[in-house]
């Protein structure tokens, strides 16, 4: 590998890495820090880069590790009990018998479910709604549906129990759905 010029390097890969990070941590400052750390680590180890992977894949591999570290730290910071701390949110969506509440039951979106939504604005609404999730909900949701990890792997990585995982995923989905309905499909 030729010794890259730091600025060219960042101009070429910076935005790509930033977008990837931002989708997964939903906090612009944290995403920028992760990108900075990625470039720093890559720069320090550039001699060890053998060119076996593409430069781009190599940078993404570093970033993915940094994101996992970020996730782990976030989980360690949690002081609340995961399943108890969302019970109030649950009560907005489901009544005591476990039925949808009259405020929160899904309405028909009147779209073809197999089609792809082309409108750019839809994706910024989706991004915003996803960003409104609690950090830990967003984490499990991103790992599952953006990075296609299996639940066991996610639990192991974050050191959470399977039952906590399913509770978090469920809450993420219910809230994301409601937010999209309110801000896009209504």
């Amino acid at each position: 590998m030729q010794v890259p010029n730091a600025e060219n390097w960042i101009n070429e890969y910076g935005d790509m890495l930033y977008r990837f990070a931002l989708q997964r941590v939903s906090n612009t400052d944290a995403a920028k820090d992760l990108v900075q750390e990625t470039f720093l680590a890559a720069w320090r180890n550039k001699e060890s880069f053998k060119g076996e992977a593409s430069e781009k894949n190599w940078l993404f591999a570093i970033l993915k590790n940094k994101i996992i570290d970020h996730y782990r730290k976030a989980v360690n910071r949690l002081t609340d009990n995961i399943s108890e701390s969302g019970e109030n949110e649950d009560a907005f969506y489901f009544d005591e018998e476990g039925h949808w509440t009259s405020e929160a039951f899904p309405r028909d979106w009147a779209i073809e479910p197999s089609g792809k939504i082309e409108a750019k604005e839809f994706y910024s609404v989706l991004e915003k709604c996803k960003g409104k999730l609690k950090e830990i909900q967003n984490m499990v949701f991103s790992m599952k549906y953006m990075d296609e990890m299996e639940s066991e792997e996610i639990c192991k990585t974050l050191n959470i129990t399977a039952s906590n995982y399913w509770v978090l995923l469920h809450r993420a989905k219910v809230q994301l759905r409601a937010c999209l309905e309110k801000n896009w499909f209504a």
Binding site: I111, L126, R177
Partner: peptide
């Protein structure tokens, strides 16, 4: 709707256009 959401979240990386400013890149 769950299917609609998970399918589109999967391509969210490609569909968003957040970017770093020139100054931020220089600082990095």
């Amino acid at each position: 709707q769950n299917t609609v959401i998970t399918k589109h979240v999967h391509i969210l990386d490609k569909e968003t256009n957040a970017s770093l400013t020139a100054e931020e890149k220089k600082a990095m």
